[in-house]
Computed example of a mutant assay.
Amino acid sequence: MDLRGKQKRYLRARANHFRPVFSIGKNGLSPIWLEEVGGAIEYRELMKVNVLQNADVTVDDVKNYIENNSDISVVQTIGSVLLLFKPAEKENNQKISKDVFKL
């Protein structure tokens, strides 16, 4: 999903006070980890992921892995933190995505 600049700015502003929900450590990336992230983002729509210092992967590796193996968008990377967005499929969970698509 391609987001326009205005949409990305809105999402970054909404996530400014968020803390990372998931971390990537020495176990690295796996399909199971991506499933867990996909399940959590279905309810949240917007969340942060932290890449720990002891991780064998870089932030760019994580970004490419997420974007190539799922329909989750990486909105921003700051240092070792990635901001992820995916519109929820259930209408009850679509709190942020409704506002994003209006922009």
Score class of each variant (00 low, 15 high):
R9V: 12
N64E: 15
N27S: 14
A55I: 06
A15W: 00
G5Y: 09
S30K: 06
E36L: 10
I96M: 02
K63D: 03
D60R: 11
G38Y: 00
V74T: 10
K48F: 04
D60H: 09
I41G: 02
G39D: 09
R12H: 06
D99H: 11
D99L: 09
I66C: 04
N92W: 12
R4E: 10
I41A: 05
I41D: 02
R19H: 10
K26I: 12
M1A: 11
P31D: 09
Q76D: 10
R12K: 12
G38M: 08
T77R: 15
F22C: 05
D56L: 14
S23A: 14
L11V: 11
K98R: 13
K90L: 14
V75F: 02
M47P: 00
A88D: 03
K86G: 02
F18M: 14
D2I: 11
A13S: 15
N93Y: 11
P31C: 09
D71N: 12
N92T: 15
D71A: 14
T58I: 05
E35V: 08
D61R: 05
K8A: 02
A55P: 05
E35I: 10
D99K: 09
Y65E: 10
N16S: 12
S80Q: 13
V57S: 04
A55D: 05
N93T: 08
D60N: 14
S23V: 09
P20Y: 08
Y65T: 08
A15V: 03
S73A: 14
L82Q: 01
I24L: 06
T58Y: 04
L84A: 04
S23T: 13
N16F: 13
K98D: 13
L11Y: 04
Y10R: 01
G38L: 07
A55H: 02
I78A: 13
I32D: 10
S70M: 07
I66K: 01
D60Y: 10
M1P: 09
P31A: 09
V57L: 04
K90E: 15
N93L: 08
G28K: 02
G38W: 00
R12C: 11
M1V: 11
P87S: 07
H17W: 12
A15N: 01
G39R: 10
Q7S: 05
